[in-house]
Design a protein around this nucleic acid. Structure first.
Lengths: 209, 209, 209, 209
DNA sequence: CATGAATGAGCATTCATTCAT
DNA sequence: GATGAATGAATGCTCATTCAT
């Protein structure tokens, strides 16, 4: 009896090498971005960090921007399932906020784990600094989630867009500060943010009424 | 009767021209940064926006970075007195938060007034995106202010650094959203942010106790 | 039967082209230096004299200085074996001086052969105008040679450093004059210099005693 | 009674200032050339070393080259009277050579006195490295002198041009070495060079005969 | 005549991109 | 598909020179 593997999954040597090259470029870019910052980075810097030749870069990406987006999307792609789980399991606003912030801060800490150890200066690239379409989508998902949860408790009239913005802004800035403290304390940041936000939203509800 | 002018203040033609050129470069940079973004901008772009020759740029600034910093510091320098006034006039946490957010959102709206009308895409450069030493100072001032105000009402034990981060993160993100809405409503943003933050801080106090 | 070639010697097209480009740049630099002088020459001038693109220069050299040194070192590298032969074959001071001057003046005449025909003004670049480390080495070799030869005949006490300086100074200046005469007479210059120097050294020996 | 002064000599304030400026530029150039070398020097470097404004440079000199020539000519102009004296006082070849080398090495030591103390790297600029018309004239004078002196003692048939070249080449190279030794010993260099040269010339006479 | 800022041609250098191997 | 040298447009920057003050 032969074990068969889905041809989509089984890869020839070629395909495997291709995938490895792609990943090598992405990883190199991550490292260089973290080391010298996105703007200062050029394609040569990235490719020098790999074992590949400069021309090879163009078999995988068209530009530095494209690499960056791939990295950003990758982060988002890995974060979205976590958010999905939060969505499914949250029962009320409090549990949603706590779970969502928890997911974010833990994700951030893990993503930047190696950078934290290496002491690289441009960390939290993954903090999703830039407004990519993918990030916009996440933002909209959160907005929709909040609307749903708030509707349940009679807060559907609140300005969901602003609340989402406030929540995300807090997450970004707190995330940066969290990463600078030792030990990195995701749980503390989570409690802080979710408490603040929960009370804040409830206060908005009252003031509106 | 002859009007005499303080010779310190009166400038020769030369000195006036120098000052005008410096300002022309700064203004041109502001415009170009807003139009095509900081990274895409090069020095020739900036100088082309003025009537000056390329070499003249280097009589005033060493690099694009230096121009950027000058612009950023300029913004901070104009914002700090507003914050100072807020500090002097605030009587309690609520009034401080309201006045501070009000100062920021109004400042932001005014700074970006022309950009808003022009519909330029890279607005809110002035949103003080980047962590310059000057911005750090403002951050510390706010932190100190908050500590002072919270001390008065028995909230001195709270994590002032995190609170400041949360407040600033919210301000940034909300500011961006505010600028995208028409009409631009600084007062609305101010109420939203200060209400949320006030209740949030009070809640933190309770949960800590 | 197949002719096999040492793989060390056989080069791929790429490697051959690289070597050819390097040589092309060196040769172009030689020509331009001779034509308009070292200082007046800029990198564009050099690259224009080749079929290469401007950027290609930097694949081979970092600066005009580096090209110049490569040329100078190349001259020295080709001259040193000649000096080595002189050293091995000389039996006494007279034969050493004659052979050494002969080697130098003939080398100079050959090096500048094409420049002489072309009537280029900045000839005798190769006269080793500038004090490079390589040239210093040659100077020291000559000093050591002279010491050895003079020791044999009881002149070991003479100031070898000064004698070497005198010998080299004469060689340089005489070389320039030799190149300006037609026909270029290396043999005449050789006799002149070696006779003068030989008698001079002997006289120093007596005056010292 | 009024003391009248030759108007050529008496100068108005203006004229004196002009002369002072000219000298300031020359002195500054000397210093900068000595410090970073002729090629690396630019006009800004020179003018920065003075208290003058950049535009003022052009009231006195057209280019760096012109300054250099002025310096070189100045050196030559101060050296020629010394040579003239040597010419007038020399009675035979030996005394001429000794006096001429003495004049040169002492002149060199004095010229570079301050550079020697300052330890500046590009000393002996004044060693008259470059073939200016003025230097050519000196060379011809020496050649004529030698011819005259040698004629007297029946050596008129020797190749005076080559002898001059040899003598000058020796002087240059020995001068450089002399300046590097401590203490700087002009007398020693003079004896060395004149002894060597004298014997050398006499030997050439014999070999020619 | 001194000043020193403006000028802009000109040079060095980088770097994304191509393409023969 | 990988290679890496060649390309040359693009950019940063310098600096001799001018000229209004």
């Amino acid at each position: 009896m032969t074990i068969t593997v889905d041809p989509e999954i089984r890869m020839g040597k070629r395909a495997r090498a291709k995938e490895a090259n792609r990943r090598a470029i992405l990883e190199a870019a991550r490292i260089v971005f973290a080391r010298i910052g996105y703007e200062a980075t050029n394609i040569r810097d990235i490719i020098r960090e790999t074992n590949l030749a400069s021309g090879t870069f163009y078999n995988y990406f068209k530009s530095k921007e494209e690499v960056f987006e791939a990295i950003a999307n990758d982060s988002v792609a890995r974060f979205r399932p976590l958010l999905q789980k939060v969505r499914e399991e949250a029962t009320d606003l409090e549990s949603y906020l706590h779970a969502a912030y928890g997911a974010y801060f833990n994700f951030l800490a893990e993503e930047n784990g190696s950078a934290i150890e290496a002491g690289t200066p441009h960390m939290s690239l993954i903090g999703v600094r830039i407004d990519t379409p993918e990030m916009e989508t996440v933002s909209e998902e959160i907005c929709a989630d909040l609307e749903l949860v708030m509707d349940k408790i009679g807060l559907g009239h609140l300005d969901c867009d602003y609340i989402t913005a406030a929540a995300i802004g807090m997450a970004r800035e707190l995330g940066d500060h969290m990463l600078k403290r030792r030990p990195v304390d995701a749980e503390g940041a989570t409690k802080f943010a979710s408490n603040l936000m929960l009370a804040g939203i409830e206060a908005l509800a009252k003031s509106d009424a």
